[in-house]
Amino acid sequence: MEEISILTAGDSAVTIEFADKISPDINRKVAAFAKALVRENIRGVLEYVPTFRSVTVFYDPLIVSYGKLCRSLQRIMENLEVTSAEKKRIYTIPVCYEEPFAPDMHTVMAHTGLDRESIIKLHSGRDYLIYMLGFLPGFPYLGGMDERLETPRLASPRTKIEAGSVGIGGSQTGIYPLDSPGGWQLIGKTPVRIYDERRKDPIFYRAGDYIRFVPIGEEKYREIRKQCDTGTYRCEVTES
């Protein structure tokens, strides 16, 4: 565990970074650390955010000193037990990769040197692990995108991206659950309401689940969208 470091993030948070890469193994350490942090219940710790390869711990510096907090976190790391993965739950998300839903498809084509069809095939051809939720309620950071699709984020982020937009940001891909500013390259859109306050569970998936994108045409998009508006559409779920 010697490669792990405790880093200061402002005056009321520290970040425990396990590595500077995306990997299911690293992510399992993150999950194990988060679990131990909850169990330890350190006085002055307010909440925490687990991410791909780190956990940020928010604390009240007037309740727990920086030094004492670091010692407690160090102790957690020394006793960390990492469990192996359990069974996979996969959500199928339909995505229309056609215009007008793919405003940055040409940028991704130019950057990757791939044609539209290859991009769609590569993007929808695998199951993505939800490494974490963040940025917006229910925004899934997905791991496992094909390296050939990597495209840098926009130099200047958009002030509005519509809910349901599917994009690529560097080596990552994901869905915008709400209208939001953002800097990812948009290559498609799902008609599914990822965030829906009418549902008992406004966000239906969790970190640790998997997402599978299925390409659909514009007509199918409109059809599913109608079902989503009336609340009758359910994403297909498979367990393996």
Binding site: S12, I22, T56, F58, R153, Q172
Partner: peptide, 9 residues
Amino acid sequence: DIISDATVP
């Protein structure tokens, strides 16, 4: 570009 991580106030 970083691997997305948590933000603080």
